[in-house]
Amino acid sequence: METITTNPSYKLELSSSPHIHSRWSTKHAMWFVVSALLPSVISAVIFFGIYQLIVIGVSVLFSIITEAAIKKIRKKEITVTDGSAVITGLLLGLVLPPNFSLSATALGAIFSIAVGKEIFGGLGYNIFNPALVGRAFLQAAYPVSMTTWKNPNYAVDTVTSATPLSAFKFDKIFTQTENLFLGNVSGSIGETSAIAILIGGIFLVAIGIVNYRIPLSIILGVVIFGGIFWIIDPYKYPSPLFQLLAGGFLFGTFFMATDWVTSPITSKGMWIYGFCISLIIIMIRLFGGLPEGVMYAILIMNSVVPLINRYTRSRIFGERR
């Protein structure tokens, strides 16, 4: 908020609330998130080749163009420099499979921004995480190319192979933990390398952009719910460590579920949100028809965030229930 201090000789400052200002604006936070995503971009290039950089570039470019175009049509101020469109583009690019077609990437980016965000009124009004809306759209529009997984550069023999989760689900093959940790497995380009995501994610939590409650509750939830099934039958159900490292779990936990706009604002609400996401993930992974359910889990929980916010609102002192 601006304070009215045009003339320094004025003693009285006039401003509307909020009166305590953070050093950071939305703009700063957004660019911090962008920098936190860079390790994942690097891991994508290392494991899947330089072409992935073009895919990410196209995704970012079309996100920015769409945002600017819609703002222009609606005669609103063009707010591309706040970086939110860049983040959406980056996130979408990073959750696409390797060697994805550029035209479909552009389409996904346009859909993300136009339908996922701007239709609701722009940044701050969207119900669903825009990047996930775009990915869900692409998943439904091009199911075959969205599930064609090219092998990472340092894997043996084959050209394509199943992701760790579908290998486990359909063929009962376990993937080595160190490969999962480094990212030398097939999967979406940004989601395979656990270490790269952890670097970015912990950076975001440390500087306070991401509230620790959301990632912590999702991880705890997966450990608890996944652990229960693992204890019941270790041969049939995967270990919690595998659940944590495989698929898009970490990426979704740190970068998608923690989106400011689409996650709850109260502390209690964040815990509820996180545990429900992890429960849905475990249900889809172990009993659903799909190998991976992080995307749908987050989208489903995004839709109930307003409800969570309402029911976990803190009570005003003295208010009767």
């Binding site: 077609s101 479909a104 339908v115 239709i119 759209f137 439904a140 529009a141 091009y142 199911p143 190319s145």
Partner: peptide, 22 residues
């Protein structure tokens, strides 16, 4: 042009109708 499967599915119908009404 690769045909989009979503437009034949019910989800595509909802999206199209919503955008048209909007």
């Amino acid at each position: 042009f690769e045909p989009m499967l979503i437009m034949i599915l019910p989800a595509g119908a909802f999206i199209t109708l919503g955008l048209l009404m909007g």
